[in-house]
Amino acid sequence: MRIRTTAVAVSGALALSAFAAPAVYAADDSANGIATSPQWAAATAAGGPSAFGAATAADGDLDVSFSAMKVNGGKPIVVGATKHRTVSVTYKLTHAADLDITSEDFANGPFLYLKSMPGSVEDTLEVPVLFGDEAASCTATSATTANCKALIDIRPADGELVNSYAKTWKVGGLALQFDEDSLELGETWQGELGTAKLQRETRLTGANATPEPVKKGKTLTVTSKLTRANWNTNKTPAYGGQPVKLQFKKKGTSVYKDVKTVKTSSTGVLKTTVKATADGSYRYVFAGSAGTAAVTSAADAVDVK
């Protein structure tokens, strides 16, 4: 795990121009990203010089509030060992009538936090936090409300996750406004806007039933293999000792039925035998757990003679 840092150093006069800065990090993470909003880049950059030069936080919070946020459509966020993952977030923003949310001086967006709710940029250096690379896109619905959508970016290959982060995170919202005259940055942090379950990705190889074709009443051997993402090593090793259900769907029907439960070997291998009774398809189904995603293998159709 590393500290995500920025090499951005711009003066206050250039603070409203486009520039590169990191936008996603946790307590001890590291990598680079691009933020389209200078406010967002400044607030979500851990370490290094401020993107606003001499800008300081304003004395008062912005007159802004967030509704409950819907993350990933309410489904768990499944993250593999290395692949960059983007997660959609939707919510309503309520703001003062005199606050122009279309101004280049304003930015807002969601974030996930694991331990305590951050109340400042400095706080995010102490607790795991995940932001998006870009600020939210908002459409006004009245003089004081807007519907917003955003993405949270997760890059396990850059050291943003460890296995202990596979649990339920809380959702927060951050709004920022930069005053070019006073060089002050107003900010509002709001937590407890929902929850999102972060899970390690699992994979099952396609079920393979042999021999094919097979005579009725003869023995079929059905195999597969279960693996799980390891965020500590950025690899996807075997997942041994796990109960996995073998299911069968008779040809001409639409419902799979449980046949038996099989445990994976120390190398993640699934192997069991069944009697061939009718044409149909076999598959394996792993139920997962709180921090591990469920997965279903591709099915193998069997022709019984």
Rank of each mutant, 00 (worst) to 15 (best):
A51I: 13
S88N: 07
A55L: 02
D61G: 11
K70H: 10
A57R: 10
I77S: 07
K75E: 14
S88W: 09
V71C: 09
A51S: 12
V71I: 15
T56I: 02
V78P: 06
R85M: 01
V79H: 04
T86E: 06
T90W: 06
T56Y: 01
S67Q: 10
F66L: 05
P49E: 04
R85H: 04
T82I: 10
A55G: 15
K83D: 06
G80L: 08
A58S: 02
L62N: 12
A54V: 05
A68W: 01
A55E: 01
V79Q: 00
G74W: 10
F66Y: 03
A68F: 01
A51M: 01
F66K: 05
P76Q: 03
S88F: 06
H84P: 09
G48Q: 05
A68Q: 12
F52K: 00
G60I: 00
D61T: 07
F52Y: 02
V71G: 13
N72G: 06
A81W: 02
A81C: 04
V78Y: 14
T90Y: 03
A51P: 03
H84T: 11
V87G: 00
S50P: 00
Y91V: 08
G60C: 00
F66R: 06
A55W: 10
R85C: 03
D61F: 08
A68S: 09
A51Y: 10
G60S: 09
V79G: 05
T56M: 00
M69T: 15
D63L: 11
R85I: 02
F52E: 00
Y91R: 01
N72C: 04
F66T: 04
D59G: 06
T86K: 12
A54F: 00
G80E: 07
D63A: 15
D61R: 03
P76Y: 11
G74A: 09
K70Q: 14
D59P: 13
S88K: 09
A57P: 04
G73N: 05
V79D: 07
G60M: 01
V71K: 06
G60D: 14
K83F: 14
V78I: 11
V87N: 06
K75H: 08
D61S: 15
A81F: 11
K83P: 04
V78W: 12
G48D: 04
V89M: 02
P76M: 10
S65F: 11
T86H: 02
S67W: 12
S67T: 11
T90N: 03
P49K: 10
V78N: 13
T90V: 04
A54I: 02
A81I: 00
A81H: 14
G53S: 04
G74E: 08
T56C: 01
L62C: 08
V64L: 11
M69L: 07
I77F: 09
T56W: 00
H84C: 00
V78D: 14
P49C: 01
Y91W: 15
G48C: 03
S88H: 10
T86P: 06
F52D: 01
S88V: 13
Y91I: 12
I77P: 03
S88R: 10
L62R: 07
G80K: 13
F66C: 05
P76K: 06
V71E: 05
P49V: 11
G60Y: 01
S88M: 02
L62F: 07
T82G: 03
V89F: 08
G73P: 11
L62E: 08
P76T: 15
T86M: 04
T82H: 09
S88C: 01
V89G: 03
A55F: 05
T82A: 08
A55T: 06
K70N: 15
T90G: 02
S67L: 13
V71S: 09
